[in-house]
């Protein structure tokens, strides 16, 4: 209102229209244009999400509506053989769980240990040397890890446990190498959480006579627990969605087994193998990989949402 008043008084004071000063915000079409363009750039991310949900939902719906598929069989069947119209996701799901569990068994304890060392023990110089090495590990493409699993880890396991027990393609080898892949992620996220704990807490622990280990494990880690938990959950989500290592090293062909030394195809591995071959659109095989994709999407999304929630709910804020 103040603005409008000023304008009217200014206008009445000056008789000539040339000298009239308008204090209203000038319309700048250029500015608006740029702003709208930038908004569209931001909105593209929404379109991407909508696209993923639409694509997965639409094709999965076609799959589940097919007379050859029943929902119950999909979730409880132990055979996945599209050729004879057997669609039970359990063998794929089970293989995904096994590779992920092995990977997490490697990555979580080691990643957290490395993070504690870097944040609590390492001098500035050691940190400067060690961190870049872990970053290199994180920057290696996953297909290279796949190669590593097949040409190093598998022969190693076969020498250790005997070539008769360990098949050429096996979930153990893929899982172990995947653990190495995820380790830098766990380390860097946990380390960020540990470094965010204020110095005063450590000083207080030392003043009470705690050793360095006791300070780290009983004071710093609990204080950073929300961040560390989030790191663990994100790591699980990465493991579930990891593709190339399992596609190369875990085996081609769904197999319902709990033996980590046997070949078993994971959900991601199956999608890659099927879509890498000649696939006719709108066949039931084609739609089935979208159904698997939907499951994958739901699993990773749930994990990511939980991780966000954990950070928000349990974060301790220090001044």
């Amino acid at each position: 209102m103040a603005l409008a008043n000023t304008e009217s008084t200014v206008a009445s004071d000056n008789a000539t229209p040339e000298a009239r000063v308008v204090l209203r915000k000038r319309s700048r079409p250029g500015e608006t244009l740029f702003q709208s363009f930038l908004f569209i750039c931001g909105a593209i991310s929404i379109l991407t999400t909508a696209g993923i949900i639409y694509v997965l939902g639409h094709e999965s719906l076609l799959f589940f509506r097919s007379p050859d598929v029943s929902l119950l069989e999909f979730f409880t069947g132990t055979k996945w053989q599209p050729a004879i119209l057997e669609f039970g996701i359990l063998p794929l799901f089970n293989a995904t769980l096994m590779t992920s569990a092995i990977a997490l068994a490697v990555a979580l304890p080691m990643g957290l240990s490395a993070a504690i060392y870097l944040s609590e023990y390492a001098t500035l110089r050691t940190r400067g040397v060690l961190k870049p090495i872990l970053e290199v590990l994180a920057g290696i493409p996953t297909v290279v890890y796949g190669y590593f699993a097949l040409s190093f880890m598998t022969p190693l396991l076969r020498t250790l446990f005997g070539a008769n027990t360990v098949e050429i393609y096996n979930t153990a080898s893929a899982g172990l190498v995947m653990g190495i892949l995820i380790l830098p992620l766990v380390t860097s996220m946990s380390e960020d959480a540990l470094s965010a704990v204020p110095r005063s807490l450590r000083e207080a622990a030392y003043a009470l006579g705690a050793t360095k280990l006791e300070t780290a494990v009983k004071v710093v880690v609990p204080a950073a627990l929300s961040g560390i938990t989030a790191a663990f959950i994100i790591a699980a989500s990465r493991a579930v969605g990891e593709t190339m290592i399992v596609a190369v090293a875990a085996g081609a062909g769904p197999n319902f087994t709990f033996n980590p030394f046997r070949a078993a195809e994971t959900m991601t591995g199956h999608i890659v193998r099927i879509s890498g071959g000649d696939l006719s659109y709108d066949s039931i095989d084609y739609n089935s990989i979208f159904a698997i994709g939907s499951m994958l999407f739901l699993m990773t999304l749930t994990l990511n949402l939980i991780s966000n929630r954990v950070v928000r709910r349990f974060r301790e804020v220090y001044e």
């Binding site: 991310s45 991407t48 999400t49 696209g51 993923i52 694509v55 997965l56 994100i234 989500s237 579930v240 969605g241 990891e242 593709t243 991601t268 999608i271 890659v272 879509s275 990989i289 979208f290 994709g293 994958l296 999407f297 990773t300 999304l301 994990l303 990511n304 949402l305």
Partner: peptide, 13 residues
């Protein structure tokens, strides 16, 4: 959230 979507799903998109 998009940063956490497995890359293979982008392939399907």
């Amino acid at each position: 959230n998009l940063a956490g979507v497995p890359s293979i799903l982008y392939g399907m998109l």
